[in-house]
């Protein structure tokens, strides 16, 4: 497979000697235009890789914050077609920042796997994370995505033991996403010592970068996790920043893009301190 923006991004950060900041937001939350503005504000604020959430009615691995964000997006008229359009609109201004779409399989299955992959690639998508497609189901989307030149980023978890890890890594590309705990998005962060041990274990099996997500909300946590991981993923905190400027009827009380940018700048400082403080 040829190199993608994801591969180039991690190569560059390796030279710089710092972990990546990966930020998740929900496509279409609270509406298409606002959400696109949030997306565009991310790279300038310090995001290295964008995770674009595809809303789904039944997100079984997500906590209340991302569930609510998905429902706001769906209520605002977001569809998979519009999420692809969001990639296209973003790419008109930014041809460097990697974009990974994250969500659940059914909307893609209904859209049609081949049609989705072709349109998403042409729009400028780099990678996919699909929560409910374990390696046992690789024929569904993973293998076709790799053929289409899109990275398929697999989740490894605390329950992925040494015996299973090679199977999880087999068709993974771009990076490995280590889920810091057994749980849903938005839960409390696990013990950072356990996390860095797990990262080391995965890195002994693969040359791919290993990013850690689930539970990281503050700059300090981003720094701590970034000391051992190649990237830190923040999702619920971003979605909460959007929610914090929405009134009870969903009306905006401040600019969500600004709220997100402020949070991302702080997180970006966190990951930039990660390796400096790790050495002392």
């Amino acid at each position: 497979m040829t190199t993608t923006r994801i591969d180039r991004c991690f190569a560059k950060l390796k030279d710089e000697g710092r972990p990546a900041l990966v930020t998740y937001f929900m496509g279409g939350d609270p509406d298409y235009e606002t959400s696109l503005k949030i997306m565009k504000a991310m790279p300038a604020a310090g995001t290295d890789v964008i995770e674009l959430g595809m809303p789904f009615s039944d997100p079984m691995a997500d906590g209340p914050a991302i569930q609510a964000a998905g429902l706001r997006a769906l209520k605002g008229g977001q569809t998979l077609a519009r999420t692809i359009q969001m990639v296209r609109d973003f790419r008109a201004h930014d041809d460097d920042t990697p974009i990974v779409m994250m969500g659940y399989y059914n909307p893609i299955y209904i859209y049609g796997v081949e049609r989705f992959l072709a349109e998403a690639r042409d729009a400028g998508l780099d990678g996919l994370i699909v929560v409910d497609l374990p390696p046992e189901m690789d024929a569904e989307l993973c293998v076709p995505a790799l053929k289409a030149g899109i990275n398929f980023i697999r989740l490894a978890t605390p329950t992925t033991d040494a015996k299973r890890l090679p199977k999880v890594l087999e068709n993974t590309s771009g990076f490995v996403y280590y889920v810091s705990m057994t749980g849903i998005t938005g839960s409390a962060l696990a013990n950072t010592g356990d996390v860095s041990e797990a990262v080391a274990r995965i890195k002994s099996h693969t040359d791919l970068p290993v990013c850690v997500g689930f539970g990281v909300k503050t700059a300090e946590q981003a720094r701590a996790i970034g000391a051992s991981a190649d990237g830190v993923v923040v999702g619920t905190a971003i979605v909460n920043a959007v929610a914090s400027v929405l009134g009870p009827d969903g009306q905006m009380t401040a600019d969500p893009a600004e709220a997100v940018a402020t949070l991302v700048s702080g997180l970006a400082q966190g990951v930039r301190r990660a390796r400096l403080e790790a050495v002392d």
Binding site: M60, A61, Y105, V131, D132, L133, P134, P135, E136, M137, R154, L155, A156, T157, P158, T159, T160, D161, R164, V168, V179, T182
Partner: peptide, 20 residues
């Protein structure tokens, strides 16, 4: 063996649950 009844069935779950 893959838990399929024709095209139906399967194991569409998060990795956390797969080992279990």
């Amino acid at each position: 063996e893959a838990g399929m009844f024709g095209v139906f069935g399967g194991r569409f779950v998060a990795e956390t649950l797969m080992p279990l």
